[in-house]
Design a protein around this nucleic acid. Sequence first.
RNA 1: GUGACUAUAGUUCAAUGGUAGAACAUCGGUUUGUGGUACCGAGUACGAGGGUCCGAUUCCCUCUAGUCACCCCA
Length: 466
Amino acid sequence: MVTGKLKRKPKAKVGKGKQVPQEPLLLQTVRGMRDILPEDQPYWNQMRRVLNRSAQEYGFGRIDVPVLEYANLFNRSIGEGTDIIDKEMYSFVTRGGDKVALRPEFTAGIARAYIQHGMNVLPKPIRLFSMGTAYRYDRPQEGRYREFQQGNFDIFGEEDPILDAHLIQLASRVMNSLGIKNIEFQLNSIGCPQCRKEYLNLLVSYLDSRKQKLCQDCRRRIESNPLRVLDCKEDKCTQVAASAPQTVNHLCVACHTHFKSLLEYLDELNLPYVINHRLVRGLDYYTRTVFEIWLNDESRRGFSFGGGGRYDMLIKSIGGDDTPAIGFGLGLDRIVTEMKRINAKLYRESRPRVFLAQLGDLAKKKSLNLFAELEKNGVLVAESFGRGSLKSQLRVADKLGVEITLIVGQKEALDGTVIVKNMVSGTQETTAVEKLVGLVKKLLKSEVVVLKNGEQSLEDGQLQQV
RNA sequence: GUGACUAUAGUUCAAUGGUAGAACAUCGGUUUGUGGUACCGAGUACGAGGGUCCGAUUCCCUCUAGUCACCCCA
């Protein structure tokens, strides 16, 4: 469906400047796909740490489900007629003739696993946490990729609105731990299938009666997605929207009570939430509570880190017992972008504080064992074995910000000694190989060796601004 | 899927209808076994294809990709 670009790399010159054409290479990521480079990994690691920890604290068991499922599973759960199914799913037929699809979200697969493995016999509620990639054939732009990472929390088997509140509390806790505090929860109840249907009828007839006062787009929206009309920025549409019927006023008694208690729980929690009558999610399986996590920033209104809601009918509709459930997904790519933007504090990654330099053939041979010896004793060592001159090796050592450089030359290799150079003071001493590990460890702990930028040397795991 | 804008070294940016410069980064050197500064040097780019033209990186078209809006959502 997408043809990659062929880029030739014809620069391989042979002999007298003749160019030999090379194999065509695909030197570009497929549209909407991207690499996450080493420099970004600290953010990702941090996020995974926070997610895993929060999941444990809130009693969620980790589950991993396949990226590939039968396409029907998604069609049936997310719903035909939604954008995700009709326009955005990566679906294809396998060599064996199976119709499959890359998961466009997590809930369907997790619900499938819940039924398939008979989790309904476990004590309820059952809490499951998952993290991984999902795929949507959408038009890419920043924060929207065709392959994206998602974290997913689901709770099965309990209808009580306190769980809705608990889940939102968890979402809040996660965002907070990541350092993203400027958020607010957008909240709505879209009722059960019965009351929603009645509401939509009301809304459509209301909008139809005022069609003349709406913009072009909104006239179209009455058919395609009437709720979106309420969200239009055109002045005239805003006026029409202002007095339009709202979902929460047309809930059935049960749904109304459910929503009301949820709000009471949230008030108790003191969480910043806003009831958004226009919030409706693009998946058919939602019932009652829906919510999204928005950045609380006027200039980037509506920027969402994730969202979710209740899906009390889903399990039954795909063949399980009647099981109420609720869950939400987090857009991890967007979270990382935000963490970078606000310069979030990160846990310091371990990095070498010792550099091993070698000079001459004999020393080079010995250096591998020396490296292993230090590493086994828990001393992280950087090296640049491929380099020849001591000067260039020291340059690398300096760039790495290492505190100690070990130098082994021809003479030391023969004597069984090592030069230990303090990169801060510039002083150095010679020691026997047998005493090396002890000396290095002692030096790393001592105050004589201090980080050059004046910071105190931090133990791994301490917070540090990156 | 619709519309708009963009596309030059690893990165950030220049210039030009006659094939390109800088900064940062990388690598090497400033005498033989010692880093951070300084100085010198090297390599690497016009996204792809077609057209106009004597000649295109520069103009036009198509494709690809990115960004933005719509749409949608993570």
